[in-house]
């Protein structure tokens, strides 16, 4: 039954996932053009100086792309479920509600994660064509928290969309926005490096919280 549920989510998200992927690819293309533009406008050594020493981010337009992607996938996944309370039918299937919710979240989370991994790989590869390995590593460290922000946004949007009452939905929104904000505090390029494992752990602790609104919805705790 769980397998059928995962398949249903896969079929439901497939087309939207491709839309999200195309959007991300377009943004990567834009970053590639920006990066090459730097080298057309200035000598390569000056571009290196600006990127390596002054911390110029030619990929800053990627900052909020993962968050938008996470929000989009959560919206297309759970908006239809919450319309006319359709999700209630799924939640009455003869398997534990937490498995149903986590099954849904697993598919959505994976959908977002795959796109973000492609983003990181794209950024790494394009940086590799113009810069030494040190810059590639630093670009990936800089962009990694943005990717985590994408996953955090997905979870946060799910938390908000599944919640049946407006009051708690607003409070959940505040927590979700605050949590995503932790990954987007800026700083010098590569600053997040040492705390990435801690932030991953925080994200892991955050994940089961999406069960709470689902339970409240299932048992009509409104």
């Amino acid at each position: 039954m769980l397998k059928a549920l995962l398949l249903k989510e896969f079929v439901k998200l497939r087309a939207f996932w491709i839309v999200a992927l195309v959007f991300n690819m377009c943004m990567l293309g834009y970053v590639y053009i920006t990066m090459n533009g730097l080298f057309r406008l200035d000598h390569a050594e000056v571009v290196w100086y600006r990127v390596i020493h002054l911390g110029q981010l030619y990929y800053s337009s990627l900052t909020y792309v993962p968050a938008v992607t996470g929000l989009f996938i959560a919206a297309v996944q759970f908006f239809p479920e919450m319309r006319n309370q359709r999700f209630r039918i799924s939640l009455h299937l003869p398997i534990a509600p937490h498995l149903i919710v986590m099954g849904h979240v697993f598919v959505g989370f994976l959908a977002v994660a795959v796109i973000l991994i492609i983003d990181l790989a794209g950024l790494g590869l394009m940086t590799h064509t113009r810069f030494p390995g040190e810059v590639v590593a630093r670009a990936l460290t800089t962009a990694a928290p943005w990717m985590l922000a994408g996953l955090s946004t997905y979870l946060g949007a799910t938390l908000v969309l599944l919640e049946p009452t407006w009051k708690i939905r607003m409070l959940n929104f505040a927590v979700a926005a605050g949590m995503t904000g932790l990954f987007l505090r800026g700083g010098v390029p590569g600053a997040y490096g040492p705390i990435l494992p801690i932030l991953c752990a925080a994200l892991l602790i955050y994940t089961p919280s999406v069960l709470l609104p689902a339970y409240r919805f299932r048992y009509r705790r409104v």
């Binding site: 605050g178 949590m179 932790l182 955050y206 089961p208 919280s209 069960l211 709470l212």
Partner: peptide, 18 residues
């Protein structure tokens, strides 16, 4: 499971507030 969900959300809220 419910307990886990509730404290997951509350711990996250504590971090965000702090």
């Amino acid at each position: 499971m419910l307990l886990l969900a509730r404290y997951a959300l509350m711990l996250t809220a504590v971090l965000v507030l702090a």
